[in-house]
Design a protein around this nucleic acid. Structure first.
Length: 263
DNA sequence: CGTATCCTGACC
DNA sequence: GGTCAGGATACG
């Protein structure tokens, strides 16, 4: 689930739940999370205040009053669940944040691949990230500057967070469908027109998901077959040209595209 | 560049 | 029981 639009939504949930509140206790309940957030470190968070919740790419940062930062990444299946400190914990609650007003923020993650880490004041916890997929900075000129000499096919290139931050496997396929660009196209062979179409396609994809969170989250989310144009639609007709949607593997991940209109 | 790895659930 | 999954990183 979580690419830029979903993480943006999640960050809003977290902000509403804990901004300005003091931490009473933090607990990592799964060994996988305890590796990056050992008990002693979690304990040291008590009493600090969440001054702000920031999203950058698919990362969330809880900026604390002490200057320290809690760095959260949902990876594949992480999500927030908000409840009360007394409420029973879900089966997949991996890291629990209890606040002084009785609010509980729980990181639920069936696969337990999410990461939560604490960074000291003055340390930038983020890895090298390109511009936000939604930013004006991310445009044809940026893509040209970074891809003109690279042979990597464009679709896996879009998944590199150092090139652009926030795109995941689903929206990479979707964006290239909007751009009418073949995902297998070597990056350095893209034309200025193609690069502009890709930047526009990425933004269109992000905007659509950001504007319609109700279609993408929770029990009311519509099925993949309806919400996406190519992702998870192998064998179905392209909504633009009626050709069959194809699935291939690139860099070990599924790519969906229309061979009829993506050139 | 491809492959393995971290985890667990869903699905065939 | 085997395969696959929307992420990221380490390694050869």
């Amino acid at each position: 689930m979580p690419e830029l639009p979903e993480v943006e939504y999640a960050a809003r949930v977290a902000r509403a739940a804990c901004q300005g509140k003091a931490i009473v206790a933090v607990r990592a309940r799964h060994p996988s999370q305890r590796r990056t957030l050992p008990n002693a470190v979690a304990k040291a968070l008590s009493g600090d205040v969440v001054a702000d919740v920031v999203r950058r790419g698919k990362h969330q940062l809880f900026v604390l009053a002490s200057g320290r930062t809690i760095h959260i990444h949902f990876r594949m299946t992480g999500d927030w669940h908000v409840g009360g400190c007394g409420s029973p914990l879900g089966r997949f609650a991996r890291v629990i944040f209890d606040f002084d007003d009785g609010t509980r923020l729980s990181l639920d993650d069936s696969r337990a691949l999410s990461r939560v880490a604490l960074h000291q004041a003055g340390v930038d916890p983020l890895p090298d990230l390109g511009p936000e997929a939604t930013s004006p900075e991310f445009d044809a000129a940026w893509l040209h500057a970074r891809l003109a000499h690279r042979r990597i096919p464009i679709k896996p290139a879009l998944l590199d967070q150092r090139l652009v931050a926030g795109i995941g496997n689903i929206y990479a396929s979707e964006a290239l469908w909007y751009a009418k660009v073949d995902p297998r196209r070597p990056s350095h062979r893209l034309t200025p027109t193609g690069l502009a179409a890709i930047a526009a396609g990425v933004k269109r994809t992000m905007r659509k998901a950001l504007n319609h969170p109700e279609r993408y989250y929770g029990v009311d989310a519509v099925s993949d077959k309806v919400r996406f144009n190519v992702y998870d639609r192998e064998g179905s007709p392209c909504r633009r040209c009626r050709s069959e949607i194809t699935r291939i593997t690139q860099a070990g991940r599924s790519t969906y595209f229309c061979g009829g209109c993506q050139k």
